[in-house]
Simulated assay, not measured.
Amino acid sequence: MPHAIEYDAFGDPEVLEFREIERETPGAGQVLVEVRAVGVNPIDWKIRSGRRASGAITAPRRIGSDAAGVVIAVGDGVGDWVIGDEVIVSGAKGAYATEVLAPAAKLARKPAALGWETAAALPIPVATAHQVLTSLGVSEGDTFLLHGGSGAVGQAAIQLARRLGATIIATASEPNHARVRELGAIPISYGPGLADRVRAVAPNGVDVALDGAGTDEAIEVSKQLVADPDRIGTIVLGARAAELGIRAWSGGNPIPLTPEEQQLRIDAVPLAADLAANGEFDVEIAARYPLAEAADAHRQSEAGELRGKIILVP
């Protein structure tokens, strides 16, 4: 029988339980995927802990949205996928499982050269980075300030912005400077004096900024250095975007993504998958845990001490 991680109440990682579940049958527009790897994202533990509003829990709740695996059943009206296809899963409900139902419209084909773990690590980071860079209009010749350059979204944003022809300045802790530089950005340390350090490496100014750190410093420095508030965005402090006078996507933002923004996120996954399969996009795997040890994975993700992605393996 299949298994999944479920929880019955908000709380610490200990609420996560590895349970046997009934095998599901895909409905119209759905496929059932046998999971080979799962991507852990910060939004997972924010919802599990109750830090991000998600409605009352009235039945056992599953967790996770990103995975990679093999199609094992297909629902009505699904013409693009057949049993045996290797796929990348985005936007699923309950991806922390050995099998998961997924919306067929959000699947991407996994290139044969792409490993399962790398494939599962892609969806939320690359979807967020691609959509936000497009929404902010990052383009050739721009100087782009990125707060939080060493996380999974930050690493994706650096690589995609570099392909757009932007000059990227990315904040990171000193031990992560080499990684940020390797990906194509100019690394600088956050902390007191950040604005002056940015000015020193960008004497002609900063055109656009993205907050992936969620700190007051990130917002204040961005507003000091970027003249147009429409070119400052956050993916962490969405609930405060109106108060701050900047743009936001997700991150608690009460304004939902537009259909165009949703489509940008869907389009990003096959784009990045092909680049990664060709060695043109790098995904850093920080740690791997068995699916049954999802609680330990959440503890490590919440600690914020790892660089890159945490993966669960069924």
Rank of each mutant, 00 (worst) to 15 (best):
I88Q: 05
I83E: 15
N204R: 14
Q159G: 08
A156E: 04
Y96M: 12
G165I: 02
V198E: 01
L32E: 03
L257Q: 05
S135E: 11
R240L: 13
I43D: 02
A95L: 04
I235C: 07
Y190F: 15
P2T: 12
W81L: 09
R62C: 11
E14P: 01
L275F: 09
L183C: 11
L275G: 08
V89K: 05
E20K: 10
E293M: 01
G238R: 02
Q159S: 08
F18W: 15
I169H: 01
Q30H: 12
E140W: 03
L16R: 03
A108K: 04
G279P: 00
A303E: 14
E260Y: 03
A200I: 11
I57K: 00
E284S: 10
E86K: 07
K93D: 15
P203Q: 05
V35H: 01
G252L: 08
R163F: 04
V221T: 11
A295F: 03
D207K: 00
I255L: 08
T167E: 09
I57R: 00
V74Y: 06
G148M: 09
E302W: 05
I188N: 02
I72H: 01
G141Y: 04
V180G: 07
N41C: 13
V208Y: 07
P2Y: 03
A28G: 10
L183P: 10
A286M: 06
L275P: 04
Q263L: 05
S90E: 07
L312F: 06
T128N: 00
L107N: 14
G151P: 06
S189R: 05
N278P: 00
F281N: 08
H130N: 13
H298Y: 13
L257C: 02
A303T: 03
Y289H: 03
V236T: 12
T58K: 02
I246K: 00
L122F: 07
A273V: 10
S301A: 15
P13K: 09
A92N: 11
R23M: 04
D216S: 13
I246A: 09
V236L: 13
E260R: 04
K309V: 08
A4S: 14
E293A: 09
S189K: 04
G191F: 06
I219P: 03
G50D: 12
V180Q: 06
L183S: 14
F281Y: 15
A95E: 06
V87L: 10
V221A: 05
K223Q: 11
